[in-house]
Design a protein around this nucleic acid. Structure first.
Lengths: 228, 228
DNA sequence: TTATATACATACATGAACGTATGTATGCAA
DNA sequence: TTGCATACATACGTTCATGTATGTATATAA
């Protein structure tokens, strides 16, 4: 039995991506063989080489199947740009966390991206796209923060670039660490209060643009005592 | 020329670890060959197999050379347990960030750990140790938060476990993202104000132990609209 | 109904990394 | 000075993943 109908073909395509997610999760991307993935999908390497040029394209396809809906969500939230920029930031962040917590596919793929693959070598070009989407996300967040300053939701001397770094790092860190131990706490349940901690901090004690005049001097000694 | 003095041997050992850092940074751990590392160090694979059982032990040794002084620093800060637990948390976090920003070795090795290797497969056992030290760090932070609640530095109904997750995730996220683009901002310079953002947030809007009685109900609909 | 492109399976060749076995020259002890 | 353990280098065999070439049965168009 060979040569399926178009639906069968697309189904095979999806099965291969499913198998890739499964095998990558178990053994990591680099340690996973194309044969492993084919067998997991109940086929042979011939199927993979028919649908994908090589391992890189397989990884890229697997990533895009999970990240594209995520980016669409971001764009959707950005489209409704209302008069509450901080609220937009909150919705964006909470939604991203909720997505990872509740969608098995996002959970699996982001776990692979964070902990089961290396972003260099032959897959470097695959992750350049990730990097660009990261930059875009960052500049959108900073844009919202600048609006928030204009509308008085944040102090006037807020360093919006550092504030963006803080929020973005917090978001990535929450994903990164929760994926390491999802049983540690219910992320979907506590996403909002967790995000509110940092947003509250940004309101009452944001990084400021002009630091006080360098204090007095000194205070830079006493480091490197422990080592290297 | 073979058979060096003990000093020469230790020097060779260090050279191999240096070479490992360099090669892993360029090509990633999985894609790096023991031959690559040996050549980078100006030797052959024989030298590596003399000093290390296999690739796993080489990675472990490279990690420990960078993380042991880090852990020593943590223990040192914990030892002086004064009457300012939140201050201890602050010092701990700021010091960790400063260390990564200013020590080239910490910078390199943590970059490898975060972005240039996969924490599964044959190296899984190597990272179990990382995982345990992570847990220890987490419980220490939570302990400090519990003390902070007792001393009135945090609201009485603070969920210290979630607060710990927030701070730990924030710390990891800051490292993770700064290592991706160290030129984006001066981490050593802004470590303290960045940490203060989250600490301020924990004081004024921490995650609470008892949420208000479930609001009204509803509000959980409207998700999964976008994807998978 | 036939022909062709499709959707895989199978077979083969190549190279590369690994582990080990062995070679070897030297520092150090007796 | 001899002898041995050390600190590597070199050589060898094996495994294994990859890429490609080829086989093959079927859906679909003509």
């Amino acid at each position: 039995m060979v040569r399926k109908t178009k639906e069968d073909t697309e189904h095979t395509h999806a099965l291969l991506l499913d198998a890739a997610e499964s095998v990558f999760t178990k053994k990591g991307v680099a340690a996973s063989t194309l044969n492993d993935i084919a067998v997991e999908a109940g086929m042979t390497r011939g199927a993979i080489y028919w649908h994908f040029k090589d391992k890189g394209e397989l990884v890229r396809a697997m990533c895009e199947r999970a990240t594209l809906p995520m980016e669409a969500m971001v764009n959707e939230v950005m489209a409704v740009a209302g008069d509450d920029p901080l609220g937009s930031v909150r919705r964006l962040t909470v939604h991203a966390l909720t997505q990872i917590a509740e969608s098995k596919r996002q959970h699996t793929v982001f776990d692979i991206l964070f902990h089961k693959c290396e972003k260099t070598g032959e897959l470097a070009e695959v992750f350049e796209r990730e990097y660009e989407s990261r930059n875009e996300c960052q500049s959108q967040i900073e844009g919202l923060f600048k609006q928030a300053v204009k509308r008085g939701q944040l102090p006037v001397d807020t360093d919006t670039h550092l504030a963006m770094q803080a929020l973005h790092s917090y978001l990535i860190g929450l994903m990164h660490e929760w994926l390491l131990a999802p049983e540690a706490y219910d992320l979907a349940k506590h996403a909002a209060p967790l995000v509110d901690v940092l947003l509250a901090g940004l309101r009452v004690a944001p990084p400021r643009k002009r630091l006080r005049p360098v204090a007095k001097a000194g205070t830079i000694a006493r480091r490197e005592k422990i080592g290297v």
